[in-house]
Every structure is written in structure tokens, then in C-alpha cells.
Amino acid sequence: MKKLEAQNISLTTRIPVLTNFSYSFEKGIYGILTDQPGENSNLLKVLAGLLEPAAGSVTLEGKNVFTSFDKSERVVRKEIGFVFQLGGLLANLSIMENLLLPFDFHFPEIPLEEKKERINLMLHSFALKEEILNHRPASLSVSVRKALLFVRMLLVEPTIIFYDNPFMNCTLQLKNILMELILTQREKNCLQIFSDCTDTKLLGIAGRILVFKSGVLYMTGTLDELKATGDDFIHDLISNLYDE
């Protein structure tokens, strides 16, 4: 099983996002809770290798995930999928072109017809119609665009998946589909990390929730374990979720 290891990571934007963070992620579902919700995306991006930390490194099987774009290092990026909370689809491309882009890049050997077939299958599993393939992202609703981000990510079949606020802008139907998807990926032994989630059902299925206080790892545990601690900071953080 692939292991994602964060070693002594520090990152400061306006405020400290991460301070000397070390952790080893293995298969399963991980949630991230912080007292600085605005910085959750940056935290996740550092772990996914999209943002270079000021200090430390994140490695996957010993290879740095913050890589150059050399062909030899592309294999690391193929393993990692990232679903943005907003945007991410290329506005100047049609939906079909958007979905084909990472597919063509990582699997140039697969014939176009087969790729289209897989895209159609994936669209059906998200209850999306084939007609949208010729549309531009701007002409679609926010929840459809969000679903397409998941479709695009899944086509490359990553083993490590990052979700930045996965249920944001989702309809109830999509939310249920995504919940199923996350559980299916868990069965496939994928490592899944989500952040900025206020959904207690999702937090409930997380094998581990990492709680950060001012950029420092404060505590880890399942939702039940965290609830049982009686710690004021944890209590405030979790009770806020229920309020929402």
C-alpha cells in the first residue's frame, strides 16, 4: 500500500497554515479540521504537491510530490487526484475536451473511442447526460460542474484523492452519489483526504480526523473519539459543525 508522508512541513501565508507538521497517511479516509477554515485549501494543496511548502517535504513512496513536470516524475502525479472546491474546469474547452485532457495526457495509448466510452459510463454513474459533453463549463449549473470535477479526476484512476470541501455546491442527489463514491474508493484501498467539510456523516466515516490549531497538529482520532475527549477547543470546533 502506498504511503504519503509529510515531513516537517511549514507554510505561512497571512497566518501560519502549517507548522512543523509530520504525518504518515496510509489507505483509508482522513478528514482535516482546522480553526482557520480559510487556509484549509492551502493545507490540502501542500499535501497534494500543488503548493510548495516553505520547509519540509511530502513524499509518496520516497518521491517528492511537489515535482517538476518531467516525464520520469509524471507517474507521481498520475497517482494523485485533486477535486477543487470551486472552478478547475478549463473554461475555453468543451466538457468532452476537459475530460479528455488528463486522459490523453496520462493514457495516450488508449484509443479515442474507448476513452469516450469510459467517459459516458462515468457520466451515467453521476446521473449526467451525454448532451453536456458539447457544452462549455460556464453554461452548466454549479453542481453539474462539481460533478464533472469528480468525473475528470476518476477517469485517471488515482490511488490518492484529495477533496477540497467535497460537498460544496452539491445537490442532495450528487451528495449521495459522492458518499457512495467515497465508500467505493475506500473499498479499493485508496487513500482519501478531505478538508473543509461540515458534513458530520462524512466526518463520521473518516478513519482519522486531523485537528489543527493555528497551523499545529493538535489532535487526531475518529469523530467519536474526538467527541469523547472533553477538550474545549475540540468541543467548540465540533459543536460548530452541528450548528451548521
Binding site: 500543488l50 515535482t67 513536470f69 516524475e73 502525479r77 498520475k78 478547475g88 478549463l90 495526457f105
Partner: peptide, 16 residues
């Protein structure tokens, strides 16, 4: 606009 809309970041996330 692509930077603002995370389109550039999404390319990086694929390794492009």
C-alpha cells in the same frame, strides 16, 4: 482568469 478560476492549478494537479 485561468489562474483565478483554478484552471492552472488543475493542470498542475494532472502533472501537465
Amino acid at each position: 482568469n485561468m489562474v483565478v478560476n483554478h484552471e492552472v492549478e488543475s493542470l498542475v494537479s494532472f502533472g501537465i
